[in-house]
Write a protein that binds this DNA or RNA. Sequence first.
DNA 1: TTGCATTTCCGCACTGAGTGCAGTTAACGT
DNA 2: ACGTTAACTGCACTCAGTGCGGAAATGCAA
Lengths: 201, 201
Amino acid sequence: MSLRDRKRVRTRQALVEAATALFERDGYDETTIADIAAAAEIGTRTFFSYFPSKEELLFPESDARVQAAVDAIADRRPHESPAEVLLRALHRVGDDSDDLSGRLAALRLRYIRDIPAVRGRALQIQTDAQGEIARHLAAAFPEQLDEVGAAALTGAFVGAITAALQVLLADVDRLDDPAAVQAAVQKATDVALRPWATGAP
Amino acid sequence: MSLRDRKRVRTRQALVEAATALFERDGYDETTIADIAAAAEIGTRTFFSYFPSKEELLFPESDARVQAAVDAIADRRPHESPAEVLLRALHRVGDDSDDLSGRLAALRLRYIRDIPAVRGRALQIQTDAQGEIARHLAAAFPEQLDEVGAAALTGAFVGAITAALQVLLADVDRLDDPAAVQAAVQKATDVALRPWATGAP
DNA sequence: TTGCATTTCCGCACTGAGTGCAGTTAACGT
DNA sequence: ACGTTAACTGCACTCAGTGCGGAAATGCAA
């Protein structure tokens, strides 16, 4: 890894940290990109060569989570059903929960609730990830699933979990308490997947 | 209904029509709010007292569809299960398909696919509608569903249909052909709900 | 019709996100 | 050490969206 690359990674990291601190101190809307860039000691214009928009600062590693799910699908054992594999994949994403502690994650949860632009972006990312997972799932089970069926199955699981989680998190006032959030995630998956737990299709 | 109110409705309508025409002619990004306001013969500033943002022009009656679903839930027959009622409600939303013809609807579908800001807003609206429907469903079946369970059920259905539809619409190049779109919607619901069709929970 | 209150309209000035361009700086490979 | 390539950054710009204050239109009562 070259000096250039290392520097780039370091600057990117600095931007996320600066943004986290400023968001915590002043709030999302009150923090401008110019502020963040200044705090990370780069020019305002340069910010946009690291992140295409302000919202993206809150989702710095969304690719890695998708990758984890895709890997989980690839690791399937020969006798597993599509639903079982998908469940394992989604579980692995949820377990990526060093992400649930962390100040940025707490901010993210709060802003997904409170700030429309962030919620919109989060939903987009989720939809895209869902599509990617569905594509891999279909590829892994060519006999049992076509693209549409895989999308429907994935959409049902993700939709159920997300919707349940949204209700549960609405009541959590301390979004920076990892235990509370983790408990909500646990309960959401339990409730959402109960219908499948008995007689899985 | 007073003159004031009638005028307001007329102006709102004029804005949607002007926007539709300009979007069709020049494209979404190339059309500015100033253009639209000018075409509807109001000041640029006044636009924002009719719509809070440019995206909103594409969703001028999202409330009505939610209301249709809520009404469908209220109309339940005594023996119906939550899933059955929900299915009927979602079906009624899908059948609101004078919306599938219409130039605005075609633009909406295209832009949901192609323009991130519009996709984000569409997902937000869907999520909110989903939550509203789930709340009413829970209220209609207090013995069988709590808020979380209702959200999960609704999320599963909507998620499945939406995901299936997205795959199917990706292949439709003529989004302004109501028959093709209607067929995709039909197939999406069929595929998505097949797992429930047999042994419904 | 007149007069007054309320609502709507709309110009102005402003902030902040995001882009294109062009010049400079810094890292890279040789 | 030197030319090449990529990154940095200031500048000028467009556009979305907001706050404010005055002007115009509408509603209502006398």
